[in-house]
Amino acid sequence: MTQSLMTRVPKTGSGQASDLLFPSDPGVIRILSELPDGGDDEFLYLGMHVRGSVAITWAGDKVSLEPSDIVFCDPARRHVLQFGEDCQMTFFRIPRCYLGLSESDLDRVLGVPVRHSEGMGALVSDFLSALAAEAEFHRSAIGDRLARSAVDLLSVLVMELLQTEAGEETCGAPKAGSEMLSRIRSFIEEHLTEPDLSPESIARAHHISVRYLHKLFQNDGTSVSQWVRQRRLDSCRHELGRTSNRTVTVAAVAHRWGFSSPSHFSRTFRDAYGMSPSEWQALAASGVGSPLTNARADG
């Protein structure tokens, strides 16, 4: 009799993965309904977003996952995952020995969001989705073969992630990195008014990974989200400080420069410049100097 190498692990009454997570025979792939509380150095976990809101803290920024996106997870670093209401993810537990991952390689792939819409990510996501959905495969010889095929695909995906990072680091020589950063900043300036401007859209427009995008800005002492936010604030500040613009509302200016929430804009503006947007605007209208030189943010 062939012993299944892929089984779905049920949840206990407390909602956590049961002791079936650690059977005597580790198998190739086990499908979990939740990430376990504790990890095991012999296994790697891959999470696939099914529905609801899920975000990853990646390179200092919060990156949202879309349905069918996947990410390599470490139970010991579960704080990098933020689950919203009605969130559902499927987790796959794979013995690390099948992937040939060293500790340094593991650190480089953990937490990297893999989009379901392109490249190997699309192939792996589609395959794992079908594998998880076909319950009849879980205890059959066919299921064992499919599980091994999934591991082969994951091995290729890991290789691609590592090679992409290595290639980007090579391209990240000082001159090349500086030129790329300059082009990205120009792109940001041209698209500041678009509310959906994000690290993902910026990276996609420049044919680089989000990871490399974050590295470029980190090397410059900031993050891409901080840069976008500051440039939007500077644009709002300039517009609100124009005396010819006295009738324009704060909400209108915030909306024009990509802030979806006027209240959030007001808080962010005050944190940056020491006064509210309306106070800034009133100071400019009063003719008592220029707010562009009176704000504490300008020193």
Rank of each mutant, 00 (worst) to 15 (best):
S129V: 13
V54I: 15
C97Q: 15
A282D: 12
K175F: 11
G121C: 07
P26I: 03
L32F: 10
Q88F: 02
A285E: 08
P67F: 01
K175Q: 01
S33F: 13
G299F: 15
L192F: 08
E42H: 14
I29L: 08
R78P: 05
H49Y: 08
R8F: 06
E168W: 10
M89D: 04
I202R: 13
Q226W: 14
R30N: 04
S53K: 15
S266W: 11
E200M: 09
L153G: 02
M159I: 07
H207K: 10
L5K: 05
S209R: 13
I29C: 00
H116N: 13
S155Y: 05
Q16T: 13
E190V: 09
K11E: 12
H79M: 11
E118P: 00
Q82A: 12
R183G: 03
L283K: 06
S64V: 13
P75Q: 02
T293I: 14
I142Q: 00
C87Y: 02
S104G: 00
V124A: 02
E34K: 12
M275R: 11
S290W: 01
Y212K: 09
T243K: 15
S201L: 08
R246Q: 11
N245T: 06
S261A: 11
F43S: 04
L110M: 11
L157E: 02
A122M: 06
A130W: 10
S129F: 07
M275D: 07
S261N: 14
E103K: 01
Q82Y: 09
F137L: 08
A76C: 01
A173I: 12
D69M: 00
H191Q: 14
S286A: 12
D105G: 03
R108G: 04
P75L: 04
C73G: 02
F92V: 02
I29N: 01
S53N: 12
I188M: 08
F43P: 04
T170Q: 06
P174V: 13
A133S: 09
L157K: 03
W257C: 01
A130G: 04
R232Y: 00
I31Q: 02
L197N: 09
E85Y: 09
P95M: 03
A166W: 12
R183P: 01
L32T: 03
I29W: 06
G39K: 09
S209L: 01
L35A: 09
Q218P: 09
I29K: 07
T164N: 12
E42T: 10
Y273V: 10
E136H: 15
L21H: 08
G274W: 15
D25Q: 14
E165L: 01
K62R: 15
G39H: 09
R145K: 06
D86V: 09
E169L: 12
E190H: 13
M1V: 10
L161D: 02
D74W: 01
V288C: 06
L21W: 11
N245K: 10
P262E: 09
G38Q: 15
R211G: 06
V63G: 05
N219A: 09
E85H: 15
F265N: 02
F127L: 02
A133Q: 13
F83Y: 11
P195T: 06
A122Q: 15
R30M: 02
